[in-house]
Design a protein around this nucleic acid. Structure first.
Lengths: 250, 250
DNA sequence: GCGCTTGGTAACAACGTGTAACGGGTCGGG
DNA sequence: CCCGACCCGTTACACGTTGTTACCAAGCGC
């Protein structure tokens, strides 16, 4: 289901409590996003001006400044999704969060998984509304007789038989097609897949998972998996898609 | 099985006082309707988008927001009957309520029986007028040959045969239609369907019930439930309504 | 040749999902 | 009041996917 060219979400974490800030940034980074800590409105503005921000996690209580005010200002000036974070669970506070236009609201202490779920929800909502046009990749790739129809996420063998690839195998194939003839390290592949795929943790610990993924993909699209002609190994580096794939629109 | 007949009224209870909200929802539920609590305009919109609403009980005083304004907006945008509820009995206020198009007006504290009587009156009036004249939340959705008539809560197969969906299945279908192409987590679906108040934060105790609900809906609207084309699974996330549904008025 | 590193892969474990089967709950007649 | 039909959540099991571990072979420098 992954599409090519999905960018890693950049999330601004605003909280004046350093411990909380670290905890949240840590967690978000472990789950495949770029987390930028900030403690003051000044820092928020700086980040908004200097780089793309996809989502702001905004604590309601910020020293002298009021998170609600900031949120209100953000909504009027820029169109950045905001999730309010608060230690207060009082109903009226919750309401106040919605009133100023927060996209969601979460109460400390929260379940990390819940936070992640909401972040994803808000992000996907934002992504969808920002590009009304179907951003679906509608290309069709052909290589060595094989056909990959990105529109329908379907792979056809040279004989025309549909081959069942798992989601992750699909994602790998897409990544390779987007980087033909370019050797990719395991880390690069893992990073490309984690953004696209399911829940993920991009750490240095890639292990052998990519090896296995490659092996499984080979077993499905290589005539002789022992002697790969399409997906070759670059010893000491990683893997490389080493045939020409022609693109065509559907 | 297919009980054509009176559908249970779905009533949105809008009040910013939690106690009042609970009292009213409790009472309405005990009297055979589905009562959905809401406290802000945001929640109102959410409910109007995700499911059929037959009547709105709207408190005049809503924190910053003004119930009258909301009512006015509702009347211009959608045609949902509204009963204004107010602690103010001043005549001019009463007038203001009618002026913005409320179908009735009731003053707190009120006699529960009186409330029920007015609710019934407004509902039956709405039903009658809807059968005679135009409007109502009467969109009709069409997708993959299927037709969902929101007005009669009826689903027709591509062949034109009526399919009996349970209430919960209907609700799921409605939620999905309101969120086409957007992946929904099990929690989000449960929250959208559950009448158990806004347990937004509380427990993620959804279990497998949504899975089963999805399976049951699939068995009724998918040609091959094993290979769903309409209601797809987003592994690690939830489910997604992945075909285009065209809306049309009746 | 000898070691050391790197990659292939079988076997296993962990996890998410589909679904059959069961049982409690509700509703509407007899 | 009971009975049967239906709705719906729970449980248990099957199955596919994916990461880990362990072992072996291939490559490479000496």
């Amino acid at each position: 289901m992954g599409e090519l060219g999905v960018t890693i979400p950049r999330i601004l974490v605003v909280d004046d409590d350093p411990e909380m800030r670290n905890m949240m940034t840590q967690f978000l980074r472990q789950n495949g996003s770029i987390a930028l800590p900030a403690a003051t409105e000044f820092e928020i503005s700086r980040h908004l001006e200097t780089g793309r921000i996809d989502l702001i996690l905004l604590d309601v209580m910020l020293g002298d400044e009021n998170g609600l005010d900031i949120c209100r200002r953000l909504r009027t000036e820029q169109d950045v999704p905001v999730i309010m974070v608060s230690a207060l669970s009082a109903d009226n506070q919750r309401m106040a969060g919605y009133e100023v236009g927060a996209d969601d609201y979460i109460v400390k202490p929260f379940n990390p998984k819940l936070l992640l779920a909401r972040v994803k929800a808000v992000l996907s909502r934002a992504r969808r509304s920002s590009s009304l046009v179907h951003r679906r990749n509608t290309k069709t790739y052909t290589f060595s007789g094989w056909t990959y129809d990105a529109k329908r996420d379907v792979v056809l063998s040279p004989a025309g038989v549909q081959v069942a690839l798992s989601r992750r195998e699909m994602a790998l194939l897409q990544t390779l097609l987007a980087n033909q003839h370019i050797p990719l390290t395991r880390e690069e592949i893992a990073e490309a897949l984690d953004v696209t795929g399911d829940a993920a943790q991009s750490q240095d610990k890639v292990g052998r998972s990519i090896d296995m993924l490659v092996a499984r993909l080979r077993s499905k699209i290589e005539i002789d998996p022992k002697d790969p002609r399409i997906l070759k190994t670059e010893r000491g580096t990683g893997y490389i898609f080493s045939v020409d794939a022609t693109e065509s629109d559907t």
